[in-house]
Design a protein around this nucleic acid. Structure first.
Lengths: 238, 238
DNA sequence: AGAACGCTTTGACGGCCGTCGAAGCGTAAT
DNA sequence: ATTACGCTTCGACGGCCGTCAAAGCGTTCT
């Protein structure tokens, strides 16, 4: 009997899916897409540090394997996660993955990494540990509902007005939960998240680090967050 | 700038874990180990259709990567899943994996493991033909959603309460699809699967056969399954 | 003591696949 | 029309890794 090869005849090809994520570049793409947004092929190529041709072949594989879905608009190819199950798969992998304490090649790179983990832009809102702290504090104070369907409370609306955050009216949902790929928790997105982040920058409470997506909270910002949210942020390690 | 390679410096090495499962032989090993038992290296080699030396190197990788744990007893090397997270990872992969049509198994092989095929423990829940029958009946009665994203319906929650199954609250997903390596189909896992199985044993509806993973459904159990699910189980062939 | 068994090590072979540059194609901007 | 841009295709290179046979080591059986 060729029952000997039974293991290879299993009706499900696990390895085919795993192989899609077994490459560093493709894994990096998926980690980037964990933010739930749609990225263009070029953005992903740059993020992964590969040429466009390389990115194209990777993206073909990921789309063909059903992990990503694409939308063509003009000369752009937008890519996003196909399914909630894919999010969960990536999360499961991340849980078991070895954490490499990021090997700093230079001090500037190291501090930039630090800043990225601490606070950064995710689309148009705040991400990183600071974002999580802000969200937690807002939930704590009853400004946000953070159940299965996140929303802004009345107290939250009043608080925004008091702080001076104007939320532009749009069809965009007020509050959304965005998954953070460094912390693997959700932070505040949606119209409120965007407006709050704009205010942080406009009021000089946070500044962008160079041209990257990294942010630093200014001393003014720390004072303001403490005053309005009772938040005590540590000095960034420099 | 070397911000270009930002995606590669993320502190989590997803690809390292995925690479462990990206090989057909290693994937076959993991599918075999999905039954929660400890297999010897030789059993796995035979199951995967490779030589012992090949199996050794694969097992070293899987143990080194933290997916499996080993126990040495005399000249035997026993291997089993390291963690519940590993089970869930494999299940998650199986959900997304391409399905190949199952080719019919020979009668001799089919009758050989009749007892195991009928009902057995898979990790902490029920597996085998009985498990499939239970799952199918639950889906039939609208107690479970069994689409791409399996879930418990309201009727399902009510049914559990009526039957007397208490599902402990945890971060664990309520309902999961677990791949059955004998049937090549998915059965009920997750918190509900575990709780249901506990109840079967606690209520005397099923009993373990000796110290193995095999189960028999008691007459009481058959009556109960018929009453609650309209399930007509045949007498076990023995 | 001797034989059988389970597993590991070593070395060599072969194939798969990720990478790039260059050229090509279609869309959008000027 | 012309240019720029985003993406794809092609061909070639190179490295990684899964595979086996054979020899070796330690344990258990007779």
């Amino acid at each position: 009997m060729d029952d000997q090869r039974a293991g290879r005849d299993v009706g499900v090809d696990l390895a085919a899916v795993a192989r899609l994520l077994a490459d560093g570049t493709r894994a990096a793409f998926c980690l980037a897409l964990l933010d739930g947004r749609a990225w263009t092929a070029t953005e992903l190529a740059r993020y992964g540090g590969v040429t466009q041709s390389t990115a194209t072949s990777h993206l073909n594989l990921l789309v063909g394997g059903g992990l990503l879905v694409e939308e063509r608009h003009g000369r752009h190819r937008y890519l996003r996660m196909a399914d909630r199950r894919v999010f969960e798969l990536i999360e499961g992998l991340a849980e078991l993955a070895p954490r490499q304490p990021v090997r700093p090649r230079s001090l500037t790179v190291a501090s930039r990494q630090e800043a990225l983990l601490n606070a950064r832009l995710c689309y148009d809102h705040l991400a990183g540990t600071v974002a999580l702290a802000v969200k937690d504090a807002m939930v704590e104070r009853g400004l946000l509902d953070w159940g299965p369907e996140p929303g802004l409370t009345e107290a939250g609306a009043a608080w925004l007005a008091e702080v001076g955050v104007a939320v532009p009216a749009s069809r965009r949902p007020l509050v959304r939960a965005c998954l953070d790929w460094t912390e693997r928790r959700t932070h505040l997105a949606g119209a409120v998240g965007g407006a709050l982040c704009s205010h942080l920058l406009a009021a000089g409470w946070a500044k962008r680090v160079g041209t990257t997506r990294a942010l630093t909270v200014t001393p003014d910002g720390r004072r303001a967050l403490h005053a309005h949210l009772g938040l005590a942020l540590d000095e960034p390690i420099r």
